[in-house]
Computed example of a mutant assay.
Amino acid sequence: MCIANSGQVNSSDPNTIEYDNIVSTFHASIAKEKDGSFKVWGQVSDSNGTGDLLVPTLIAPVNGFNYTGTALRATGGSNSNSGHQFALLTTDGLYMWGTKNYLVSNTIKDNTAFGKISVNGKADGLPTGVTPSDVKMMFGSYGTLAIVTCTGEAWVLSFNGSKNGDGTTENTGTMWKRVKTSATENLNNVVAMRGTPNALFALTSDAKLYTWGTNTYVNNGGASSRTYATEVTKPAGVTPKMIGMTQTAGSSANLQSYYLLATNGKLYAMGDNGYPPEFSSVS
């Protein structure tokens, strides 16, 4: 089921929970209102992509965000406090603003000001065969914009890490990549996707978990880099409700941690950040 642009959804079903009513980068946030509009505030969040907004400000033409259509999704990406880049999806297509080369490659968006982008010649900035109304979820992290469609497809536009998910390792970030489980099989039935600057994590409608990218874990030992989506073993007897992911900084840079909120109300974690390479309950 694809979630309508209807604000908060009160649901306990993993297939219909709406993520991202509030999203944050290092020093900025975007919030979705009940009426479906979005407000942004924080570092370089002004429509010129360089000024700071000190109070939540409506993302709308009246405030310099000169888009057409109806706002559907919003996200951002950053890598410490040195830069933030934001994306807004409307029924007309993708718009971006903020520090260049932080969410998408500067070959796609070569200035900071709010404006529409195209990707590989497609005017709405989305993958071939995907329209704005097809997008169920849009997620951003440093160097990566990712979307889940209403039909369960996972697509990645990335210039950092091995996050393409289609077996390729090039990271020019100029083309959308359809995530696959092998050279011949697509990753299907995706309902949620989370990630870090170097890896991604997905939940499917049949309660399966997948990961791919740099230094990933699959619940059976140490970290490994994976160019295809690889199934993660769930804790025994657990049904996933929501997923999350973080990445370690410092001496253990680029190691991933995974978080799983189960329908039994328990939170499980796996990976770096002091947790073992297998899922265990967090107390």
Rank of each mutant, 00 (worst) to 15 (best):
A60S: 15
T239N: 12
L53Q: 05
L260Q: 01
L103I: 04
M175V: 15
T50N: 11
T144A: 08
P240N: 08
G121K: 02
W41L: 11
G152W: 10
L53G: 02
N254T: 13
V191R: 14
G274L: 12
V190D: 01
K208Y: 12
V238C: 01
T68L: 01
C150R: 10
L267W: 05
T181C: 12
N5E: 05
G51Q: 05
N219W: 07
K32P: 09
T227V: 14
L267C: 08
I17P: 06
L88Q: 09
R178S: 08
V191I: 15
N164H: 06
P240Q: 06
D46S: 12
V191L: 06
A202T: 14
N111I: 03
L53V: 02
Y142P: 00
Q256G: 06
T263V: 13
L58I: 09
T230A: 00
P61G: 05
T204C: 08
T99N: 07
F159V: 04
F86P: 05
G213P: 03
N63Y: 02
G36Q: 06
G69L: 02
S141W: 01
S205W: 11
V190I: 12
R194G: 04
T214R: 07
S162A: 13
T230M: 01
C150D: 05
P235F: 08
N220H: 04
S37T: 14
L200P: 06
T91E: 06
T214E: 09
I117E: 10
I147L: 14
E185Y: 01
S252R: 10
A154D: 00
M193C: 09
A113V: 13
S162Y: 12
E231L: 01
P197V: 01
T204H: 11
K34C: 06
I117H: 11
T168K: 08
A202M: 15
F26V: 12
D92E: 12
K163F: 04
M138T: 06
T70G: 03
F279K: 06
D20G: 07
K100Q: 15
G165K: 00
C2K: 15
V232R: 05
L54W: 11
M175A: 15
G152Y: 12
V119S: 00
N120S: 12
K122M: 08
N101Y: 10
T172R: 11
L53H: 01
S6F: 00
Y95S: 13
V104I: 15
N15Q: 13
M270P: 06
T16F: 13
T211V: 07
G98R: 00
